[in-house]
Each structure stands twice: as C-alpha cells, then as structure tokens.
Amino acid sequence: MWTRDDYWLAIHFKLQLYEAMGEAFQRLVADVLMAHYQDFVPVRPSGSVGDHGNDGYVRSLGVFFQVYGPANVQEREAARKAHADFAKLRRHYPDLKSYRFVLNDRFRGIPASVLDELNAMQRETGIDCQAIGAGHLLGLFRGLAAEARTLIVQGVPGDLPDWIDPRAVAEVLEHLARYDAGWGDISKRLAPDFDEKIRFNGLDGFAADRLRSLSYQVGSVDAFFQVRDPALAQAVAQELRVLYAKSQQSIAEVDEDAAALRYVWMIKRIIPPDARKRPIVLKAYREAAETVLAKYFETCDVYDTPGTSGRTA
C-alpha cells in the first residue's frame, strides 16, 4: 500500500527529474541505476576521447545506457543523438546486447521520432533498443528500498499538509479531473465479458449505465500510466481491491441493492476530502473516480468475476 513516506519520496524524486539537466540528470539516473542493478557501472567522459556513447552499463546483461537531459527536448535532435551514440557503442563495445536511451521527457512522453529511430535501429541490427523516460525512472525509483530512495532524494519531511492526498489513485484522479479524457473506442474489455460481469454482480440501473458509459474513457487511464509510471497501475489496483473488500464488509450481501450501494460507497471514498468541499471541483473528480472504477472493473480488481465463488449469479 502507498504510505505517506512513499508519497513524499516520489514527490521529491519527481521534482528532481523536472529540474535536472545535463550532468545533473546523468548523476540522478546513475544513482537510480546503481541502486537497481548490483553491477551497474557509471561512465564519465575521458578527455577528448569522450564516453564513446556510453554513460553506464550493466556488464552481466550487456545493457548499455546513453543518458540525455536537455533543458528542452527537441525531437529531431534527440532522435539524432539516440542514433549517433548507438553507432559509437557498436564500434567500441562488442558485448553490446541491449541499448537504453534515457531521455528526460519530464513526464510528457517519449517523442514519436525517437521511438521510430530506436525501432529502426533494432530492426537493422537485431539489438534490443528501448527508450526510458521520466515515468519509467519513477517506476524504478519506487521499486527501490526505502533507504535507497531516501538517500537519492536526501531525506523528506515527516508530515503532510491536510490538503495533500498521498494515495496512488490520487495521482490518476488529479490528471483526469484536470484534462478532458475524451470519448474513444471501447477498451479491450479485459473482463471475461463486460456486460456479463455487470449482470453477475447484480448491477443495474444507474451503476450499470455509468460503468458502460465510462468504459469508453478507460483508454485515458491507460495512457496516463504509460507516460507517468506503469508501476502506478498496480498500486492503484491494490488500493481499490482493499477498498472493495471494505465495501463488502460495510454493506451486507443480503441487501438487494448491495452492488449499487458499494459502487456509490467506493466513489465517495475514492474522491479526496479536499475536492468534496468545492462543488465544481467535486463534479470533475466524481467523473474521474468513476472512470478509474470502470477501468478496474474491467480488469477484475473490483467486483466479482463470472465463474468465481464470489457471489451467486
């Protein structure tokens, strides 16, 4: 579960990513990689020779990293650098098996031209080429032991202001509430069958209609996780599984409206207390909360799956 310390550590690391440029970004990435890989070796340029496109490597895996943290990312320049440094690595490091181009995209997403260049390099050489952005780095950071995270950010305050929500789900809610998710194609329907699951759980009327409607915006949640931090999706799933279990304890199964009551019960508790104080903000957060619930209804993290012993159809 997300703790207050986890939240503070992640916030301080994210701020470092937003502010780090050039060598400062390279040092920050090296700190994370050294904590993540036992045999990661950072490389510093040597005189006029430079670093041969190598900012660090994991010898046991043959993974080489090039780290690029400009003040402002220019797509064509970033793609050019990814290609040029890869060519240097191939000339100077015959044990190259995987190439990681680490770009400080400041959570905006890796530019398409960079991804296209890496894909072309992989097709041409057969060497695994991937980009690592700020969201991926945050995911690596969150996976470290608390002691390592604290050392990287050099400590954090012990308390949180009352208006800050430290939960993992709060990050998703804030994004969805601020930006229009839009209406896309119906998502992949990871649940065995969306409508079947609705019927199996005894959902009808308002709750069923809202789940069907908001399922068209679930893609916006997936897009958020891909750019911000893929590991965050699992943290939110864990929080919602716990929340659903609590709803089952609070609302008796024998109540004929149990499924709908649990739906409203969870929505009320997903929305942060500070948002409930402002009607206009509350409306945006309520729809964001329902979109998140639709996402995790699909992935079977809340409510029961047809064919399980969770309830009787």
Score class of each variant (00 low, 15 high):
residue 135 G to Y: 05
residue 240 L to Q: 03
residue 214 L to S: 04
residue 262 R to S: 11
residue 245 A to M: 02
residue 151 L to Y: 03
residue 110 I to A: 06
residue 101 F to Y: 11
residue 29 V to K: 12
residue 149 R to C: 02
residue 144 L to I: 04
residue 160 L to N: 10
residue 126 G to Y: 12
residue 186 I to D: 01
residue 91 R to K: 12
residue 28 L to A: 04
residue 84 A to D: 15
residue 237 A to P: 13
residue 88 K to N: 15
residue 283 K to S: 09
residue 131 A to C: 08
residue 175 H to L: 02
residue 174 E to K: 15
residue 149 R to G: 00
residue 65 F to D: 06
residue 299 T to W: 05
residue 75 E to I: 01
residue 130 Q to E: 06
residue 246 K to H: 11
residue 148 A to D: 15
residue 254 V to E: 15
residue 305 T to P: 10
residue 122 Q to P: 06
residue 272 P to M: 00
residue 264 V to L: 08
residue 218 V to A: 09
residue 303 Y to M: 05
residue 226 Q to T: 13
residue 199 R to I: 02
residue 309 S to R: 13
residue 39 D to L: 10
residue 143 G to I: 09
residue 177 A to E: 02
residue 26 Q to N: 09
residue 77 E to K: 15
residue 306 P to V: 03
residue 20 A to F: 15
residue 264 V to Y: 02
residue 145 A to D: 15
residue 295 K to G: 01
residue 27 R to K: 11
residue 21 M to R: 13
residue 31 D to P: 11
residue 97 K to Y: 02
residue 36 H to G: 05
residue 17 L to Y: 05
residue 69 G to V: 02
residue 283 K to V: 07
residue 256 E to H: 08
residue 54 N to T: 07
residue 68 Y to P: 06
residue 211 L to F: 07
residue 192 P to A: 04
residue 177 A to M: 06
residue 197 K to Y: 03
residue 188 K to E: 05
residue 297 F to I: 02
residue 8 W to I: 03
residue 9 L to I: 07
residue 137 L to P: 01
residue 256 E to I: 14
residue 232 L to A: 09
residue 292 V to R: 09
residue 214 L to M: 10
residue 145 A to E: 14
residue 75 E to N: 09
residue 205 G to V: 14
residue 54 N to E: 06
residue 56 G to I: 05
residue 218 V to M: 05
residue 215 S to E: 00
residue 223 A to M: 03
residue 90 R to F: 04
residue 281 V to D: 09
residue 299 T to F: 01
residue 260 A to K: 00
residue 25 F to G: 10
residue 126 G to A: 09
residue 72 N to M: 06
residue 207 A to V: 14
residue 119 N to M: 05
residue 56 G to A: 03
residue 184 G to S: 11
residue 9 L to T: 08
residue 39 D to K: 15
residue 312 T to H: 11
residue 94 P to Y: 00
residue 34 M to C: 13
residue 57 Y to A: 04
residue 47 G to R: 14
residue 81 K to S: 06
residue 237 A to V: 01
residue 272 P to Q: 01
residue 106 R to H: 00
